[in-house]
């Protein structure tokens, strides 16, 4: 994977546009989803993704294979831009509406069951609102680990913090979400 990405980067630097397209196809969706987790808005996520990929394209020369994987490099660029965007906006992202959830392409091969779709939409809404209530550090840890499936080592390299800190943040984030879910269930139980 590492050597493959490095070769693609080299090809890009030699003017091979198809290699750049392959990189966009490989990482575009991930960056887009990462941006969406932070902004919680599709239009902002698209703008951010575009800015990130333009920045990556302009700075491909600065990538050094010796300093780490391309994945971490591109995610670091993405993270920096997302943080800049967050600072510019200076607000906690608003929870996305159900309309956006409906337009999400739910990756499920099973036949669409209305009840299941409704439950999934409800769960996604809960998770979105729960993530917005976390502090940026905890949210970042949960997004990268539980939504993006990154390894602890890669996260430590990306965030430039020890692995123990990463694990601690993830645990705290999960605990907060679990407590939030517990409170929600109890509220629903009281209402019922």
């Amino acid at each position: 994977m590492l050597s493959g990405d490095t070769k693609l980067v080299e090809r890009c630097l030699h003017g091979d546009d198809s290699a750049w397209e392959m990189l966009v196809n490989s990482y575009g969706k991930r960056i887009y989803n990462l941006s969406y987790r932070y902004t919680n808005r599709k239009d902002e996520a698209e703008d951010l993704t575009q800015d990130i990929l333009i920045r990556v394209y302009q700075n491909l020369k600065s990538y050094r294979a010796e300093s780490g994987s391309f994945q971490n490099w591109i995610l670091r660029v993405a993270r920096n831009l997302i943080i800049d965007h967050y600072r510019q906006v200076r607000r906690f992202p608003q929870a996305g509406g159900s309309e956006e959830l409906e337009t999400m392409n739910i990756q499920d091969d099973r036949a669409p069951n209305p009840q299941r779709v409704a439950e999934q939409a409800e769960a996604s809404l809960f998770l979105q609102s729960g993530l917005q209530s976390l502090s940026p550090e905890l949210k970042e840890a949960i997004v990268l680990r539980d939504l993006e499936g990154m390894a602890y080592g890669d996260m430590a390299e990306l965030l430039n913090v020890p692995e123990g800190t990463i694990k601690s943040r993830i645990n705290r984030g999960r605990l907060e979400l679990a407590k939030l879910l517990m409170r929600r269930r109890s509220q629903l139980g009281m209402q019922g």
């Binding site: 969406y36 599709k42 996520a45 999400m104 392409n105 996604s124 998770l127 949960i142 539980d146």
Partner: peptide
């Protein structure tokens, strides 16, 4: 929930 979270 996190594992089932839909991807855009």
């Amino acid at each position: 929930l996190c594992h089932q979270y839909p991807a855009l």
